[in-house]
């Protein structure tokens, strides 16, 4: 029995290279969230869908040539770290905030952020509020004992904006109070605000303000110790970003022509960028053709929830989505 266990451990440890293991297996194992509005869920036909899920598919398209060659493993928040550390999943894409402690204690590496979440505000459209300053004098509902509550006080006081907080124990109560009009605005992470708004009787009467007052950079993470795999996952994300920046979509990629050498390298018409990653030069074509660019992924999953692009706009539009150069 002991010998058997030792053998199992040795066989598992000896195959260290994630890329080889994924290829040998013929599918990517992606740690995901199975119940987060817009980010990870199973659609009515039994397909995994969502914003985070699409990035799993993009990696599979690049590495294996098939966006459907993914085995999704639904992880609870607590199970994320062991699942990644022990190699149960090849990549973790489950609304996970990149922080120093997670990179060190979790022995995880975070690739470029795919979704800049952060604390925001929701108010009624009829008030015509647009900026934080417009919130002066408002009553604001917030959940008790969260970083959200602290951020609210810190940021608005620092800016000298007077407000009355209504602090409640439970998130559901907070949104109920807001919907019943007991407060003028409610504050939480923007993705949560959008999700909760979708549950309101008249979602269109409410608007999520553009300003963001805290930092929750969410992105894919891989294990320490496999730089090649880290590079691949990073550049898949960059490729999705860059395709949107230059206007290449799943619709137009077959007819897209350009004289720009960087875009030609990007699409594998020139050079050997894909081979340098250990893939082939068609990798970007497959990602964009099968999954789409960043804007397409956004529109498919988050646009219908009414989440504003905000910080997640391209850098050319004043956002933080900034692909590194393909050269």
């Amino acid at each position: 029995m002991l010998v058997l266990v030792l053998l199992l451990i040795m066989s598992a440890v000896s195959s260290a290279q994630t890329l080889d293991r994924v290829r040998e297996r013929g599918r990517l194992i992606c740690g995901a969230n199975n119940a987060l509005l817009g980010f990870g869920y199973v659609d009515s036909d039994g397909n995994w869908s969502g914003f985070d899920v699409d990035f799993c598919r993009a990696i599979a398209a690049a590495v294996l040539g098939d966006a459907n060659a993914v085995e999704f493993v639904a992880l609870s928040a607590a199970a994320r770290q062991p699942a990644l550390q022990t190699g149960e999943v090849d990549v973790l894409i489950r609304n996970t905030t990149a922080t120093l402690i997670r990179e060190t204690d979790w022995t995880a590496n975070f690739v470029p952020t795919t979704f800049y979440d952060g604390q925001g505000f929701m108010t009624r459209k009829e008030y015509g509020i647009e900026t934080l300053e417009d919130l002066a004098g408002a009553t604001i509902c917030v959940t008790k004992g969260t970083t959200t509550e602290l951020n609210l006080a810190d940021v608005l006081r620092a800016r000298g904006i007077p407000f009355t907080p209504i602090v409640q124990e439970d998130a559901n109560t907070v949104y109920d109070s807001y919907e019943q009009g007991r407060c003028d605005a409610v504050t939480s992470d923007k993705s949560q605000l959008a999700g909760m708004r979708a549950l309101f009787a008249n979602p269109d009467d409410h608007v999520i303000l553009e300003p963001t007052i805290s930092k929750e950079p969410l992105g894919p993470a891989v294990r320490h110790g496999d730089d090649q795999w880290f590079d691949i996952v990073s550049w898949v994300v960059n490729a999705v970003f860059y395709a949107e920046e230059v206007g290449i979509t799943s619709e137009n990629i077959d007819t897209y022509t350009t004289d720009n050498p960087e875009i030609q390298r990007f699409l594998g018409l020139q050079g050997d960028l894909g081979e340098k990653l250990g893939l082939d030069n068609q990798w970007v074509y497959r990602i964009i053709k099968q999954v789409g660019n960043y804007g397409e992924i956004w529109d498919r999953n988050l646009a219908q929830l009414g989440i504003p692009r905000g910080l997640n706009a391209q850098w050319t539009d004043g956002g933080l989505i900034y692909a590194r150069p393909f050269r």
């Binding site: 199975n34 119940a35 509005l37 990870g40 199973v42 659609d43 009515s44 639904a74 992880l75 999700g195």
Partner: peptide
């Protein structure tokens, strides 16, 4: 994270098409 009857129900309610 297993998708038993309850897990799948949670997943369905996370589908924007059936939100709320």
């Amino acid at each position: 994270g297993l998708m038993d009857l309850l897990g799948i129900a949670r997943s369905i309610t996370a589908n924007p098409a059936w939100a709320g």
